[in-house]
Design a protein around this nucleic acid. Structure first.
Lengths: 202, 202, 202, 202
DNA sequence: CATGAATGAGTATTCATTCAT
DNA sequence: TATGAATGAATACTCATTCAT
């Protein structure tokens, strides 16, 4: 009996996760306006009904996606930092992380969408601002050790993280809008900001 | 008689300009989807009908706004460059230009909107991509002289301009989403990229 | 001075005639709904303004077209009858008149449009019904002499004319809807109704 | 469980049928242009939304109405023919069928609307022409036996059917436009075409 | 007289949301 | 829990009509 209940709950949980994953992709691909509830549900293999059984509204799933997205980004970067001890190496990894992968561009588009929504919908902004600030803080803390070793003309780690995020979003938008797979400007900017020597030259 | 005719044409021209200006603001504030034709017309002090006797469709006014926006930006920067001979001074002006004013943030939001639209609507992309490329080219040419004097680790002036634009968009989004009037990160990043000394320290 | 006034009036008259002619064609081709005032004016080489200087409304020009159309049909048939003395020959002419020409199909489409409008708009019906009745009467009178010679199982010349008109409209619609230039069913039906022998066999 | 599902499906089916029936009436009464989606839905006792969850567009419901209409006409005539063995009797039934009832006039108006739409919208024409041709074929086959017994000066059964349909449409339009319940011209024409003696005299 | 800018009611269609099954 | 039928507000766009020029 307990088993059954658990199974049911697990089933529900799975549905919710799939919908969340779907929303993450669909918001990133089509934007908040272009992502209809039908589309999100359909992409997850369900119908509208499943959506409304798991999320109270489209607004709410956007918040859930925001949280999931920041959580994942933090986890990814934590892994990255644990593996790298050297500041210069970290720098390279960061550059690659933020630039190379398909997923990263999606992430940039998603963040753009969050920011636009926050800029336009005060209700969303109220939730978004603290999450974003907290996220920036976490990233700053995370990057602090390694970055501390490098000479920075920036005010604070927070500022550096902010610029990192801004660049990530700005470059993602530019790439996606040009339908180009893009170069590696991101890395060069990073090195430039951090005063690091050219890769492979040091 | 000529007077009357001219007045009529001028009247129409004025309406068109007001609608364009209104669209520029409304697109920037609410995004393409959120900017209903009614809203654009209303904000300009007209009704829907006036809109459609001046622009064939919402798609078309977006293009017109794009062209007007890039034209203005080019003109503004041309003025800026003419006034400044020194690279370092130019740098400061650029930093201020891209960061300080209300108008600039709007410009960033607008560019974000263009890029999102281009990423999602292939028809718009077809028009947007050449305009954007041309614009980047123009800005590069414009900035080339002054920037040539500074040591740059970037591939090309185009790349520098691209990063400038990406940062401008990314920072605008971040500021607007945080409802903060923001700091002056932009300037610091610029100096950092350009290898220039801190302002007032040289 | 009288000259100038006359010229002006004539000019106005010409405009009106051209608009009427244009409306006749445009209503026939696109239907009442599909015939926008702009289209009618444009087809006549004018703008909306000219239209409203000459006709109080779209409803009104439909009535004017109705009158012009029936007037023309009567004139055409009068000419036809004057030229033909023999009933059988008249029959052939009628068949050809109602069937062969491009203009006739247009006329059928136009009448269909009048009838639909009358069926749907009581205000138009009030004007249309007497005009139609009068027209049917006129045609009946006109055809009476010749038809009298033929053996008819129909109640009255009016009924015959009514059927003639119904067939004309029905066949026009059928042809036009099939985009076929059509055969000569009309003639055969006529002969059949009138008890006439096959053409060329007598 | 099966019961519930069936009920749901049945409910949807019922809605669809009601909307179709409503469209049939509303198209016939107001024409394609005059039949707004709102009106169709409202006449069926629903709102716009119900319409769009049952039909993809107004264009599509017109096609559905076309198919339903021809299907019904065929069924009705099949019943008629099965009951009557004698050609002359069939003739009378046909005359009554095509002329007497309210429903028949509506059918004529509806066919007029189909034909106008086909004449003006190439996309609709593409669907309409084969359906119409097929329908004419079916009716011809159906009427063939009985009509074979009668002397006909027409080219083919198809031609006869075509004329029948044209007359039906033409007379319906005339009646409806005159707001008259009309006489029985149809029957007399039929007898005349078919060379049959006056009813009750043979 | 004729022009054409502007109005505003009307149309097809989309989509977030509700609720009976 | 999940379904999907139905709602109704919102949106882009059309077009008859008015009126200042």
């Amino acid at each position: 009996m307990k088993r059954k209940r658990l199974t049911r709950e697990e089933g529900k949980q799975q549905t919710k996760e799939r919908l969340l994953e779907s929303a993450l992709e669909v918001f990133s691909r089509y934007g908040y306006e272009g992502a209809s509830v039908d589309r999100i549900a359909d992409h997850a293999g369900y119908t509208k009904g499943a959506f409304y059984s798991n999320f109270p509204s489209k607004d709410e799933i956007l918040l859930a996606v925001l949280e999931e997205h920041t959580r994942r980004e933090l986890v990814d970067l934590e892994e990255l930092v644990q593996m790298e001890a050297d500041g210069t190496q970290l720098l390279e990894c960061l550059a690659q992380y933020y630039e190379s992968s398909r997923t990263r561009v999606d992430a940039g588009m998603l963040m753009a969408e969050f920011q636009l929504q926050s800029a336009r919908d005060p209700k969303f902004a109220k939730k978004f601002i603290p999450v974003f600030t907290q996220h920036q803080e976490s990233l700053s803390l995370l990057l602090n050790r390694a970055l501390g070793k490098l000479s920075l003309n920036l005010e604070s780690p927070q500022e550096f993280t902010g610029i990192l995020m801004a660049l990530s979003v700005g470059i993602a938008l530019q790439k996606q809008s040009q339908r180009s797979s893009g170069g590696d400007s991101f890395g060069r900017v990073l090195r430039q900001i951090l005063g690091a020597p050219e890769q492979g030259k040091g």
